[in-house]
Lab assay of single mutants.
Amino acid sequence: QVNIAPGSLDKALNQYAAHSGFTLSVDASLTRGKQSNGLHGDYDVESGLQQLLDGSGLQVKPLGNNSWTLEP
């Protein structure tokens, strides 16, 4: 069960990665100043990332080996 409060997208993504045990490689300029609506409930990694990114204009991309990145 994930419980991440709304706020900074950077912070939300870092909390989610730490909670879910995956690696997220992101260029900080992509997420700077963006906000997230947070995340509450049970999600697989990709669904949770998509939910956190909702409205940010960013997309999640798998890199393999439980690693992910973001792209515009």
Rank of each mutant, 00 (worst) to 15 (best):
Q1F: 15
Q1L: 13
Q1C: 15
Q1K: 13
N3A: 09
N3F: 14
N3Y: 15
N3R: 11
I4F: 03
I4T: 02
I4A: 02
A5I: 06
A5G: 10
A5Y: 08
A5S: 11
P6Q: 07
G7H: 04
S8Q: 09
S8R: 10
S8N: 10
S8E: 10
L9W: 02
L9I: 02
L9F: 02
D10I: 13
D10V: 08
K11C: 14
K11Y: 14
K11S: 13
K11I: 12
L13G: 01
L13Y: 03
N14G: 10
Q15W: 10
Q15H: 08
Q15P: 02
Y16K: 00
Y16C: 07
Y16S: 00
Y16W: 14
A17H: 03
A18D: 07
A18M: 12
A18Q: 12
A18F: 11
H19C: 13
S20K: 15
S20L: 15
S20I: 14
S20F: 15
G21S: 06
G21D: 05
F22S: 01
F22R: 00
F22A: 07
T23M: 09
T23F: 11
T23D: 08
V26F: 15
V26T: 05
D27Q: 07
A28R: 12
A28Q: 10
A28N: 08
S29R: 12
S29W: 12
S29M: 10
S29H: 11
S29Y: 11
S29E: 13
L30F: 07
L30G: 04
L30K: 00
T31N: 02
T31C: 09
T31E: 01
R32A: 14
R32G: 08
R32K: 12
R32D: 10
G33Y: 08
G33P: 03
G33N: 10
G33R: 06
K34A: 04
Q35H: 13
S36T: 15
S36W: 05
S36E: 01
S36Y: 04
N37D: 07
N37T: 08
G38E: 03
L39M: 06
L39A: 04
L39F: 02
H40Q: 13
G41E: 01
G41V: 03
G41H: 03
D42P: 08
D42T: 14
Y43S: 01
D44E: 07
V45H: 06
V45N: 04
V45R: 06
V45T: 07
E46K: 12
E46H: 11
E46F: 15
S47F: 09
S47P: 04
S47N: 08
S47M: 10
S47R: 12
S47D: 09
G48H: 03
L49F: 08
Q50V: 12
Q50H: 10
Q51S: 08
Q51H: 11
L52E: 01
L52V: 02
L52M: 06
L52W: 02
L52R: 00
L53R: 01
L53N: 00
D54P: 05
D54M: 15
G55L: 05
G55Q: 05
G55V: 03
S56D: 01
S56T: 15
S56P: 01
S56E: 01
G57I: 04
G57F: 05
G57Q: 05
G57D: 06
L58C: 05
L58H: 00
L58A: 02
Q59A: 11
Q59Y: 11
V60Y: 10
V60K: 04
K61E: 01
K61T: 07
P62W: 15
P62S: 14
P62D: 11
L63V: 08
G64N: 06
G64V: 03
G64M: 05
N65V: 09
N65Y: 09
N65C: 10
N66F: 07
S67L: 12
W68F: 13
T69L: 14
T69M: 12
L70D: 00
L70N: 01
E71T: 11
E71K: 05
